[in-house]
């Protein structure tokens, strides 16, 4: 129910079709590729249609391949056992995207971690401050491909 409604709304609002995503071998997953500026609207739609469990946020730095930062958001509708993967891409020279911490509070810590490691600035996030890394690594964006750990070894 919730899933069908969501697919219909995504098509009429953003003109995006659901694609099958067989790479998730845990559960049945559908992939939507959206523009980064729509992320908040899509998250609100997800929440309204029963996708109330957020799993993980996985950014990938594709800059050596001539692309930007790809963000992968995994959501689940626990009742229908359907997963949704939202893929969006932001440029590396201006890595900004809206924060979803108020829609999905579980994303707050995840966004904070990815800000610290990738330098993705989540607009509207209430506490973008160091979480896991040592002070010497702050601002180096350690998970970007441009960061080479060798010279920094002690």
């Amino acid at each position: 129910m919730g899933f069908e409604n969501f697919v219909k709304l995504m098509k009429s609002y953003f003109g995006v079709e659901a694609e099958e995503y067989p790479q998730n071998h845990t559960a049945k997953t559908y992939l939507f590729k959206i523009k980064p500026e729509y992320i908040r609207e899509v998250a609100k739609l997800l929440k309204e249609n029963g996708f109330d469990f957020f799993h993980t946020l996985a950014p990938v730095d594709y800059s050596p391949k001539g692309r930007g930062l790809e963000l992968n958001y995994f959501f689940e509708n626990v009742e229908e056992r359907i997963w949704i993967l939202i893929k969006t891409e932001i440029p590396l020279d201006n890595p900004e995207i809206d924060s979803l911490h108020d829609i999905y509070p579980s994303l707050e810590a995840c966004e904070r971690e990815e800000w610290e490691k990738f330098g993705i600035f989540f607009k509207g996030h209430p506490r973008l401050k160091p979480l896991l890394l040592d002070d010497t690594l702050q601002g180096r964006w350690v998970l970007r491909k441009s960061y080479i750990p060798e010279p920094h070894r002690k």
């Binding site: 790479q23 799993h55 993967l85």
Partner: peptide, 19 residues
């Protein structure tokens, strides 16, 4: 390619996204 995988570990579901 890329893949997502999850198992129930002692402390809960652990999930990998591998590219």
């Amino acid at each position: 390619g890329e893949t997502f995988s999850a198992v129930e570990w002692a402390r809960g579901g652990i999930e990998y996204f591998v590219v």
